[in-house]
């Protein structure tokens, strides 16, 4: 019996040595350590043996079982490890291969800049309003102190819907300023609003001129609003948008619907004020017109200029986008070439 155990042990170990897969290992375990294995049979038969022999064989059999079990555990650990290693080896890829492409959508640069401009003013408490592109002469000109045959009409090359161009004619708005009047007709002070939208010009296109543009109009009306507040608001905007270090110029200019009138320019991005072709050698790039709302304009909006004051401003979105992205041809915006659009 003892000899039988010895042989069994040796045979099992020899078989175990040849096992190379987890599946084989399981058959080995069933064969040598399972319920029907020889070893189990020997252990079960112990009871029928004489006491002396039972002790010897029992001890020996248990020892063989322990030894086989530990060999099994060790083999199992070893096999699991080698399986994992070979699995991992098979999983590897060339990580430099390109990923699966996902098509990218982007906003038009005008939209991006427009949203950025509006966001800055919204943070300053301005509310957003929109108005019609096709306007009455009254809102676009007359109510803004630009009656028919006024010299300032030269500042606005107009696309007309009605050929008579007279009072009551319809036109494509040349600026977003008609919204000043439309808003005053609807709201009472305090007013703090921005009004973005498309504007149109009777203008031959070239690198710096377009027949369609986007503008953002601003309007703030209440008691005690001053030119200094306008300056503060616009400087804050410029700092937010162009950076704290950009120098800003705040100079006198003329628009019939504001008094005093203002033009704001920022230091040229290309030459930093030294003068270059981009800034026509002035060192400055104009970005917006502004001023204190003219008393007559307030009156037309049914707001008493003796009690209230206000400021207004208007800026061209493309011009600001051109400065931000160093775009040198305005026609790129609405020709919508994907090679241009995908850069933003």
């Amino acid at each position: 019996m003892l000899k039988q155990l010895e042989e069994l042990h040796l045979e099992a170990l020899a078989k175990l040595n040849r096992v190379s897969e987890l599946k084989e290992l399981e058959s080995w375990r069933i064969r040598y350590l399972g319920k029907k294995s020889k070893l189990t049979q020997i252990l079960r038969s112990l009871a029928s043996l004489p006491l002396e022999e039972r002790k010897k064989v029992g001890a020996q059999a248990n020892e063989v079982k322990k030894a086989l079990e530990s060999s099994f555990t060790e083999k199992e650990r070893h096999l699991e490890e080698t399986t994992l290693i070979s699995f991992l080896e098979r999983q590897g890829v060339d990580v430099t291969l390109p990923g699966r492409p996902i098509s990218i959508g982007r906003l038009h640069p005008t939209t991006r800049i427009l949203e950025e401009i509006c966001d800055i003013f919204i943070r300053m408490g301005f509310q957003v309003f929109e108005g019609p592109d096709v306007e009455w002469d009254y809102y676009n000109f007359e109510a803004l102190n630009i009656p028919q045959w006024h010299p300032a009409r030269d500042m606005f090359a107009t696309l007309w819907i009605d050929a008579d161009m007279g009072k009551g004619a319809r036109l494509l708005r040349t600026h977003t300023s008609p919204m000043q009047i439309r808003l005053m007709e609807r709201k009472r002070p305090p007013i703090r609003a921005i009004m973005p939208g498309r504007v149109y010009r009777y203008e031959a296109t070239d690198a710096t001129h377009e027949s369609m543009l986007y503008q953002v109009e601003g309007l703030a009306i209440n008691k005690n609003i001053t030119l200094a507040d306008l300056k503060g608001t616009l400087f804050e905007f410029c700092h937010c948008f162009f950076g704290q270090e950009r120098r800003i110029r705040f100079r006198c200019d003329y628009f019939p619907f504001v008094e005093p009138g203002v033009e704001v320019a920022i230091e040229c991005s290309a030459c930093h004020g030294a003068g270059c072709r981009l800034c026509s050698y002035s060192g400055w790039l104009e970005i917006l017109g502004a001023g204190m709302v003219h008393p007559d304009v307030l009156k037309r909006g049914n707001i008493d200029p003796e009690v209230y004051t206000g400021f207004a401003f208007g800026m061209g979105v493309e011009r600001i986008a051109m400065l931000r992205y160093s775009i040198d041809d305005i026609r790129l915006f609405y020709s919508n070439d994907s090679r241009f659009l995908e850069q933003f």
Binding site: Q127, P190, I191, R192, N224, K231, F250
Partner: peptide, 17 residues
């Protein structure tokens, strides 16, 4: 000189939302 105009923040109340 417009450069002498002070720089102030709007201090008037915000319009109602």
């Amino acid at each position: 000189g417009y450069d002498k105009v002070p720089i102030t923040r709007l201090s008037s109340p915000l319009p109602p939302q």
